[in-house]
Write a protein that binds this DNA or RNA. Sequence first.
RNA 1: GCCGCCAUCGUCUAGUGGCCUAGGACACAUGAUUCUCAUUCAUGAAAUCACGGGUUCAAAUCCCGUUGGCGGUACCA
Length: 428
Amino acid sequence: MKVRTRFAPSPTGLMHIGSVRTALYAYLTAKKSTGEFWLRIEDTDRKRLVEGSVEDIVSTLRWLGLNYDQLVTQSDRKDTYQKYARQLVDEGQAYEKDGAIWFKMDLGGKTVVTDLVGERVFTFENKNQKDFVVLKSDGYPTYHLAHVVDDHLDEMSPIIRAPEWISSLPKHVQLFEAFKWQIPQYAHLTMILGSDRSKLSKRHGAKGASEYSREGFLPEAILNYMALLGWTPKSGKEILSLDEMVAEFDLKDTHLSNAIFDTVKLEWMNGEYIRQMSDAELTKRLREFLIGHPSITLKIGSVVPLIKERIKKLTDFIPLTYFIFEEPEYDIEIFKKIKIEAQGAVLKTIVGKLESMEKPWKADNFEEIFRNLAKELNIPVREMFQLIRVAVSGQLVTPPLFETIELIGDRNVLQRIKFVITKYFSVV
RNA sequence: GCCGCCAUCGUCUAGUGGCCUAGGACACAUGAUUCUCAUUCAUGAAAUCACGGGUUCAAAUCCCGUUGGCGGUACCA
């Protein structure tokens, strides 16, 4: 049987981070059996439309690499839904009331549907059902009619969707039967919850998927993390590419219980991807990411190897390295944390050593020189290095000192240390 | 309320009757490496498998009930 799946968001705001998983599972299911993956815009609720939503959904899917084979929009098919609603009325399976068309539910017997997720079986007593609207008085279909008509016409199966649709199953089954259409296979996913176990929302720090992009998360990491929130590959691998997921994915192995979204683990995974990336690739990503940022120059490439193991998100790059590109701010209090007496005099000695070094400076030479100097002055090596670090960067934490000094260059380094001496230690 | 689903370390999970005195990952703690931070490595703490009954020689695994959580109950999706 041909497999074709779709991701069907309604354009009522930014694409939610939780939807990434729904889209991903639909994509994986399709690609695993060399089927098609479509994007369908469910814009039948005209009142809730939010401008720019479609663009956000489209660009987010592109960013993630979840490429769809076809894009359809429900409002384009208004006539089709009306035709089928009409047909139901003509056949006596629906009726008009208050300008809307209502489907007549059969209240006898049960509805039994086997779901692809965990092969569980949903059973509903039809006596609990009631008639429902299929075509609203504004002429647009409700979700139920649109789902049945679209997924039949587009030959979608399986239907991969959020769990809130489970209780609508009797409606959908009876609609398919009313049209004498084959009922597709269904796969109802679980809910993704926030840390307090309520539905994941902005309150939990969960944002639109595109906002994660802006915060310096990598699409690979987002995809990988979301995939594991409800699915464990048979291989047990934790880090896997889209292609590897396609190879291993199976809706059968998808979980039955809700999962809590954990930003901390997402960040760990993002860092994992950053560390595994080649320097060239990371440089390229940072360049794209930092477009427009004032402190960024062509020097990024040489900084990347120094910070690769120190950042978890692309945004971390800026606070960690800004002092390389521009003059740092100094705070006299920081110097007090360094356990060296007469810091001004020591710094002066350091300047002397630096000035006598051959130019251009090479990182390799610094370590030996300053270790010896520390010994001469009877200062712990660690404190010596910290003093230089703070004098050059204004920070207690930086990328490796000597490589950083080399990057900043002799002129700037000497200028900074001299500035610190005159400003804070007044040694003339 | 009614209907439906779910229930293993804080979190993501492995586990489909014996291999489980429950394994891995994140986070956490300690130690090693180290110029800071990070990385890496080692070690540790962390789950009476929600609870109560069954079934069985044997249950985290099967059955029933309870409790809890979540979803649905719209001319929203």
